[in-house]
């Protein structure tokens, strides 16, 4: 009885399937096409980024030390308790704010000035543009080493120049001076990051309709007034998005610090990202490193959500 019903049902379904087969198959093929196109990329992202991310979160609650085969036990919130008393971590947090704030602000300011300078047509603009954007292409490890050498009184000119200008009592390496060391990576970062801001802002500047400026100057607006009432409002969305994104990116950008000072002297240049790397790479304490990473992630998550929402909003606007 049961078997009969099942076979009838099967026949019915089979018939139905047969009747609409070409459109259904086509519909399935059409519906799956975008997934097939994006599957390889998606699988890779999930396997190499999402899975390790989840695993990393679990490490934060476990004792994972690479050199200790008996580690791996669940330790609950121990790492976070240790973290709440870790002075080096709080210093790294403050340093991160200082590093990010100074870098973003100065990169943006000099980038904006450069974009405004390059927005005017002049002969040789293409070559000038290629030259000033070149630092962007320099690998970050090389940018770091390069600036470390410039600050080194043995081979670099900077200490000698600062000394002759009277800014230094003797040609010393600022990277080994606890008070000044952070300026080393910041200067390198400014050098390296100006092109990014200049390129994005220049693109936004060139999208401003030129007749607006003409109309404004016919109406008697001076250059300052034109800048404030035309240029700035047009640039505002680009400025907001680039600064928001760059802030996240730079706060996580540890390459220059690791190459130039390795967090020293006396942790004065350690930022959270470089602290995580040091814990994992030097101490091989993956558990503690992951706990710090989790805190950093929580701090950045709120910030990132804001950007995703902003991006959606901007996209829906045009």
């Amino acid at each position: 009885m049961k078997g009969k019903i099942r076979s009838m049902a099967y026949a019915a379904r089979h018939d139905g399937l047969h009747a609409i087969r070409p459109p259904l198959m086509k519909r399935i093929a059409d519906a799956s096409a975008p997934y097939l196109y994006s599957a390889p990329a998606l699988i890779l992202i999930v396997a190499v980024m999402l899975v390790p991310l989840v695993l990393g979160v679990s490490y934060a609650f476990r004792d994972i030390q690479l050199l200790n085969p008996f580690s791996g036990a669940f330790v609950g919130l121990d790492h976070f308790r240790a973290l709440s008393e870790d002075q080096a971590f709080f210093r790294a947090l403050r340093n991160t704010l200082w590093w990010t704030g100074a870098s973003v602000l100065l990169q943006f300011t000099f980038g904006l000035i450069l974009a405004l300078l390059l927005d005017k047509p002049f002969s040789g603009r293409a070559i000038a543009q290629a030259l000033v954007f070149l630092p962007w292409a320099v690998p970050s490890f090389l940018a770091g080493l390069n600036w470390a050498w410039l600050f080194n009184p043995v081979v670099g000119p900077l200490p000698h120049w600062l000394y002759r200008l009277g800014l230094m009592s003797q040609p010393a390496n600022i990277l080994s001076d606890p008070q000044l060391a952070m300026w080393g990576p910041i200067v390198a970062n400014i050098w390296w990051g100006i092109p990014f801001f200049a390129i994005t802002l220049l693109a936004a500047l060139q999208a401003i309709p030129r007749d607006l400026y003409e109309a404004a100057s016919i109406d008697g607006a001076g250059p300052v007034q034109r800048f404030l009432s035309i240029t700035l409002p047009f640039l505002a969305p680009t400025i907001a998005i680039t600064i928001l994104l760059r802030t996240v990116w730079i706060s996580n950008f540890a390459d220059l610090i690791i190459v130039m000072t390795n967090g020293g002297p006396a942790d004065r240049t350690q930022i959270v990202a470089s602290y995580i790397f040091t814990q994992a790479f030097k101490r091989l304490d993956f558990g503690y490193a992951s706990a710090i990473a989790l805190v950093l992630l929580a701090l950045l998550l709120a910030y990132s959500l804001l950007i995703v929402i902003l991006r959606q909003w901007l996209l829906s606007k045009d």
């Binding site: 980024m49 695993l55 790479f281 992951s290 990132s304 995703v308």
Partner: peptide
């Protein structure tokens, strides 16, 4: 959203788990 998020979070936090995997 997933792709944007991968651009946001600190890649340095994947150093340890990726090594372990």
């Amino acid at each position: 959203t997933l792709m944007l998020l991968t651009q946001m979070f600190p890649l340095v936090m994947l150093v340890a788990p990726i090594f372990k995997i």
